[in-house]
């Protein structure tokens, strides 16, 4: 019952949200990623967005109309409404003006708390409550460097740089950290933002049943290469996914702890380079956190992008491309 209500609320809102977009660019896909979620987490986020906009939209909309009406009615010289130069208090109105915000905030607080638990990145009940005991979730360790993403698949002992590939209809649990500075992991159509911080571990999760390719973004400023620190997230069917895993495992490249140290040097990924690592030294994720906590840094040269074109030529010359 509740699911159905949610569903109709969602599709109704989507229809309204889509109207201006359809006018703008016909049927060429929906550019509003937030209104077009493709995973359980993003779906849930949108539901709370709609509840909030519905409640607040009514209040704000009516208030705006009230103000416009007063402006029209009480304009000087038009004699539309009676002037009362001393009227400045009414107990009834005071009750209403305090009552409406209190009730609205009360209702929204209930939804806010509910939603916070539902999509708690560390234990999202929206995913875990549907999980069956025999479900085999995928684990991905995310390591952000300056300025690339490394996705380690500990279950397969392999890793992929700057591309995330996941099976559909399977819960995915992320552990995330960073080498140098802080940024934020964000796939607008699949899962909301979570900070990735050096020397710390955060978590997130997603589940999607929509095959397709979705944009991933480093959504917090992390220095010169942030704008190019993007990655595609491909959701594949079970068979396509196992084929893809085999493809990665055939890659000639592998990654050791020492290799990671070189990989994590500042690198602006302007060509959106994707690298497959068929094997990864075990425990890389925890190793990186330990190293950073013990004071390891990956410093940035002064003025490194004072001349960006020149820096990129230098980066290419160092054969890191």
């Amino acid at each position: 019952m509740q699911v159905k209500w949610r569903h109709s609320l969602k599709s109704g809102w989507r229809y309204i949200a889509l109207a201006p977009i359809l006018l703008l660019d016909g049927c060429a896909g929906n550019p509003y990623w937030i209104f077009n979620p493709k995973g359980l987490m993003a779906d849930s986020d949108l539901f709370y967005l709609m509840v909030d906009v519905a409640v607040m939209g009514v209040i704000v909309g009516l208030t705006a109309l009230l103000v416009v009406w007063f402006m029209w009615r009480y304009q000087k010289g038009k004699n539309r409404g009676a002037y009362d130069p001393s009227w400045s208090h009414s107990n009834a109105i005071e009750v209403v003006v305090w009552g409406i915000p209190i009730i609205a905030v009360g209702v929204l607080s209930w939804f806010a708390v509910k939603g916070t638990f539902e999509i708690n990145p560390y234990n999202p009940t929206v995913i875990t409550k549907h999980m069956k005991p025999d479900d085999d979730p995928v684990e991905v360790d995310v390591i952000a460097t300056d300025w690339q993403w490394l996705f380690v698949y500990p279950q397969y002992h392999m890793a992929v740089a700057n591309e995330l590939v996941l099976p559909a209809r399977t819960p995915v649990f992320f552990r995330l950290t960073s080498t140098a500075v802080t940024t934020t992991f964000f796939i607008p159509q699949l899962v909301g933002m979570i900070d990735v911080m050096p020397g710390m571990r955060t978590k997130n999760a997603l589940e999607s049943s929509h095959m397709g390719s979705y944009q991933g973004i480093a959504s917090d400023y992390a220095g010169a290469g942030t704008s190019w620190m993007t990655f595609k997230t491909n959701i594949l069917s079970a068979t396509d996914y196992s084929q893809w895993v085999r493809k990665v495992q055939r890659s000639p490249v592998s990654m050791s702890y020492a290799g990671f140290n070189r990989y994590a040097d500042p690198y602006i990924n302007v060509h959106h380079k994707v690298v497959y690592f068929s094997s990864v030294q075990d425990g890389l994720f925890d190793h990186v956190i330990d190293e950073v906590m013990n004071g390891k840094t990956w410093p940035i040269p002064p003025m490194m992008t004072e001349n960006m074109v020149g820096y990129l030529q230098q980066q290419d010359a160092e054969h890191r491309d």
Binding site: F70, Y74, A82, P85, W87, V97, I100, P101, V105, A112
Partner: peptide, 27 residues
């Protein structure tokens, strides 16, 4: 989250009070 939304109460009151300042006024 709840603490943040609480700010909305006095702020909302202010908006209503300005609106009712215009009410029965001569603008």
């Amino acid at each position: 989250s709840v603490a943040t939304m609480l700010v909305g109460i006095p702020t909302g009151v202010k908006v209503f009070n300005w609106a009712f300042t215009m009410y029965r006024g001569r603008l």
